[in-house]
Nucleic acid binder design. Structure first.
Lengths: 340, 340
DNA sequence: TTTACGAGTGCATAGCTATGCACCAATCAT
DNA sequence: ATGATTGGTGCATAGCTATGCACTCGTAAA
């Protein structure tokens, strides 16, 4: 509480030094404002001398617009999400926004951080949290902050969603597996609460049902390498081993492949077909060459940014927007088996 | 420019509704302030009715403290850096700060974004950019914002650094290689401008020199899997192949392993010893089991946060702090060869 | 020469919260 | 009973920028 020296020079300080009014300083930094070149130079000289940077804080107060967008994310162990985060950051910066990064333990709702974000007057929120119940979403709407929910199909007046077509993709995989000679199917899921995992399972089941198949080995994991490894170990411990395994994401698929090859001595794809989801960089690595679905992260991010632009333009709610982006199959070696 | 409805209720609105003064509202939200329970309840009731959230913006103006810390990062393709980002975020949030995430293309300096950060009045900056010249650092100091530079040993009055002992680690690897029978050495570097890569090379050379070895095959890459792959292809194209390869990070080491095994049919570790740096999760995967150095990311982040705490407490510069954290060798299968 | 106009400038104020200060009503000590 | 303390309360203002408004000049049009 001592008389701490003022850290930043203010526009008033600059004005005094330059011998002009504070308005002149303000107008110097506003593009297109009416100000003579001569005065602008005087101001800039004084500003340079004082290391002046205009503060955005009062502007936020006046305009009710902070240009801050919060990105709420649950974990970056999955390269897909760190890539998405990077794309969002770049895209938002290009649009003139700044990114407030908020980490919430995955499994927790984002309710707890909302009041804090409201206090910073963020213009919008992007949530990559896998869990966001309808109830949370309604709670959220009370704050009247536009929210884009990534890969979680919850929405209301203020909450939009951008998702990948998990059901359709998973469903189509069944055709590939059958063509490649798969007969006994297995699925390794993410956490029970994950909508993405649930949709991929549902789609897989739909595809199987279309061929009259209702037998499906199941194991629950956590979207991580270790979880996929452990799940595969238990799923393949018994006598009745699947020969076509679908994992809810690539990390688990890679863990499963290592388990099958190294612990059980099984060959992929000769003994077991394996596919994942996300197309993370490691999926293309020589040791795995994993068949997987590309979630078009760039496109999904672009769609989300478009929604945010609309929300920024119309100051009201953006309506119940829900965008679904198709997933694209990339077949690599883990499913390249000749049909029987 | 229409008469846009006020989006957020202000403390004055709440005060009017509750029939108290604006001061009372403010004090309701300040822990430990003198306010009667009765009044607090009245205020809270009115606040709930209006969905009031106190704005932090005016507080920033008054206190000259935003509780915003910027993290500047160049790329998250390397899991080591996304893990570091996550740890910083969690740590800063626990300390009551919010994180402003700034992406700068690696290779660019952070000079360009500093004015913007100054405009947001960030309390401090964490830079994980691999490039930060002495000149940039001095430029930076003019803004009087405390900066912690991660893994780049630049510093001045306002810029501190937290680094890992790259030189010592790389140097010690030579002993291991010699004990495991390595005789012809190779090094795959990161981008030429990367200090981390340069230090690891320097340490490796020091270790070799201590044994009178000055022959070292070199290839330059970019810290990525594909770069490591290509570099290994060219390094092992000739007749005089190394039998002990050190890569400046794990991603490149993994790319190199895939190139050696799959393109040249070489065995790792029997034909070539390989080691990397970072201990990213993939290094432990069954297909690679890569020997590497753990950068103790948690400890490095903790040290950086400690510096930021000091900087926050003393409002002045924090002095020329430079902290070096040791790296720890983890030997896995890629160097487990019996000595000749 | 007068009128009109446009460019440029300064004044004053809004925007929202935190806090020093003055003040008031009780409660307590003497 | 009086003075002193404590716990609450409201008033007024600081903090910094953007902008509507009034005003002053030159300059172009009439």
């Amino acid at each position: 509480m001592t008389a701490r020296a003022k850290k930043y020079a203010s526009s008033t300080d600059v004005a005094r030094l330059a011998g002009v009014s504070q308005s002149a300083v303000s107008r110097t930094y506003k593009p297109g404002a009416k100000i003579s070149e001569e005065m602008r130079q005087k101001v800039l000289a004084a500003a340079a001398q004082l290391d002046y940077r205009p503060s955005l804080i009062p502007r936020i107060m006046l305009t009710h617009k902070s240009n801050l967008v919060a990105i709420v994310i649950g974990g970056m162990y999955n390269p897909f999400y760190s890539a998405v985060l990077e794309r969002f950051t770049v895209g938002l910066q290009e649009a003139g926004n700044q990114v407030l990064l908020v980490h919430v333990d995955s499994g927790h709702s984002l309710d707890a951080v909302i009041p804090k974000l409201a206090s910073y007057r963020v213009d919008a929120i992007v949530s990559a949290l896998s869990i966001l119940s309808k109830q949370s979403a309604d709670e959220l709407a009370r704050f009247k902050i536009p929210v884009v929910s990534f890969n979680t199909p919850v929405r209301n007046e203020w909450v939009s969603s951008v998702c990948c077509d998990n059901v359709g993709a998973a469903r189509s995989l069944v055709e590939l597996y059958l063509a490649r000679g798969g007969r006994r199917f297995g699925f390794i899921s993410g956490p029970p609460a994950s909508p993405a995992s649930a949709e991929r399972l549902a789609g897989f089941r739909l595809g199987l049902a279309a061929h009259g198949i209702d037998n499906l080995a199941m194991a629950v994991a956590d979207f991580r390498y270790e979880g996929g490894h452990a799940a595969a170990l238990s799923m393949f411990a018994g006598p009745d081993r699947p020969d076509a395994l679908f994992c809810a994401n690539d990390l688990m698929a890679i863990g499963a492949i290592d388990a099958l090859r190294r612990t059980y001595g099984l060959r992929v794809p000769e003994d077991v077909l394996v596919a994942g989801f996300d197309d993370i960089p490691s999926a293309a690595w020589g040791a795995y060459e994993l068949t997987t679905f590309v979630q078009d992260g760039q496109r999904m991010v672009d769609e989300a940014l478009a929604i945010l632009r609309v929300a920024a333009a119309s100051h009201g709610p953006v309506g119940e927007v829900a965008i679904e982006v198709p997933a694209r199959l990339i077949e690599r070696q883990t499913t390249r088996r000749q049909p029987i």
